[in-house]
Design a protein around this nucleic acid. Structure first.
Lengths: 183, 183, 183, 183
DNA sequence: TATGAATGAGAATTCATTCAT
DNA sequence: AATGAATGAATTCTCATTCAT
């Protein structure tokens, strides 16, 4: 509820009164449920990320999938999060600068690191296995892929013409095999 | 000067006093030079975009490059803008929600449309010429590529180990030919 | 409360802090009760005028009084308003220029028109009935009488030596029969 | 020049920049001609009133006119001032509250007293001479007449259908002989 | 739990005034 | 004399937060 408003207007531009009105009460009443606006934000972010971070960290350790399938898995997972938590995705993508330096922000950075680690493992294993090209800087490959996932949340509409899975598949096709026809 | 602070802290979180202090004066003194905070932002965005939009609109009309070269050109152009105007890039990427509905925002949207049109033309011609795969939804290809360009501004550091051109080239290699080794 | 300060110092010269201090609170606290300084003024004016305008408009339509009695009635009514709403009278008389162009100002002009219409009807009927001189420009007669009513609010003191009714009666005597002794 | 702006917008609502712009210079440049905004106002008022006050004070002492003619003279004189000094009239009528307590304001009050004195003398002599009715409170007669003069400046337009002298004559007719037809 | 009144620390903006050039 | 940059105090308004009821 508050998450949706944070996502729509940005965290700073959302007033406590905005949230209270949406919740059908007065702004002072919110403080019976939350200690502060910051705590509301923190709870929203934490609820969405805690399970996700655990998963990412596990993923970085295990993952026995074949390289191409692993890439597909990671891309799907990334997009799935944006679909499951559209508000939190929007807040992290568009507003996180507004709370830089807070514990909440650190949580987001921890997740970013977990994701980077998981992807890096997958990309390394692909190269080692000969499935992936060795001439591409793996940092940049990661950045390209995560860019697609991050931006996905910006334009994806659940009621649009393509399902998330179709989109993820197409993006995988593009990233794995390229836009160009083989010569 | 103001642009850098807007970029670093977000537009709403930047106070007029922040800008004035950075400029070595008191907040009221700024109004000798600008009519309002909004006007300051508008001038910053407009200065950066006016020339760029003209270029994008021209590009959408002409461009006789061979498809692969055209994709390289567009990616370079996009990243070049982020390098030349890092603050404006950051503001547009992270803060534009904060001034949705203003004339300044409309300017940004106009540029977005010009860019989309230019890319779309290039991708269509590539498919027609047989250079690009016809099985990939061109909207999604565009979105993948623009995602890479947008996110590029988020992590690129001018004093980093790779030049912008190297990064752009690698991203083109990836997007054109794919991550996977041909079988 | 706010009305008295507006009346004493003028609207522009009254600060929100002035009003808040008088009300025993801080300036920001006023905004719990009013959306803006303008709204405060508007409510003050509107509360005083709404009923009065209705009355004036009714008066312009009906009124079957004998001409001399009708003039007395109008003069009494005008002065009565200044006595009942001394602050609003003062604001309208001395400060209305400060909010020219607002909806509040239009309300005042609407009342002015209603009053002029009511007076004009009375004066016309008096002339037709032969009770009033036909050689005096009725516009000027109206302006003379309304001038007396408007200025009345400037100097009348409720605790002064004469009651409002006495004053109104004297003014009627003067305006109806003149200062000079008949020859 | 400044007087016209003060008159139109009110003193407080007129900025030094408004005046400077009208004078074709920048606000700082005005201070080579005037020490302060207050001084500008003071000079404007003083220029108009100094001669007038002297005249009023002389009038209060001398004046050998016959009572009816004296009333006509005073009314004409009052309206003449409003015609000759429309801006100063407007400032005194509408804005003087804004500078209550200043030396400039005292000057205005001094003129008010001189005028009241002159009128009072005339009215007293008229009653003594049997030309004016003795049953009308002379304070109120004065207030009625000065009200007409003050308000005159509010609505008089030099390019209107009636000249000032015609208006003054009609007002004298009304005030001296009354609105009602003699019975 | 909820209300509604109040707080207090800013926020953007205005404006008379100063002053070096 | 005029400019243009800067000042600093004041103004309206916002908003997270508190607290008695």
């Amino acid at each position: 509820m508050a998450a949706a408003i944070f996502a729509r207007k940005g965290v700073t531009n959302t007033t406590v009164r905005d949230i209270a009105t949406e919740a059908g009460m007065l702004s002072g009443s919110l403080y019976h449920h939350f200690a502060s606006k910051d705590e509301m934000l923190d709870e929203i972010i934490r609820n969405a990320l805690d399970a996700d971070i655990a998963l990412d960290e596990a993923l970085a350790r295990s993952s026995e999938l074949e390289p191409r399938a692993a890439v597909r898995e990671l891309l799907h997972r990334g997009m799935r999060f944006a679909v499951d938590h559209p508000d939190v995705s929007a807040i992290m993508r568009d507003s996180s600068k507004e709370f830089a330096g807070t514990a909440t922000y650190e949580l987001i950075r921890r997740r970013d690191r977990a994701i980077r680690l998981a992807w890096t493992r997958v990309l390394e294993r692909g190269v080692t296995a000969g499935a992936f090209r060795a001439d591409l800087d793996p940092d940049l490959v990661f950045l390209a892929m995560i860019s697609v996932v991050i931006s996905f949340g910006r334009w994806y509409r659940p009621d649009g013409p393509r399902t998330m899975d179709q989109i993820a598949d197409t993006m995988c096709d593009l990233l794995l095999d390229g836009l160009a026809n083989p010569v």
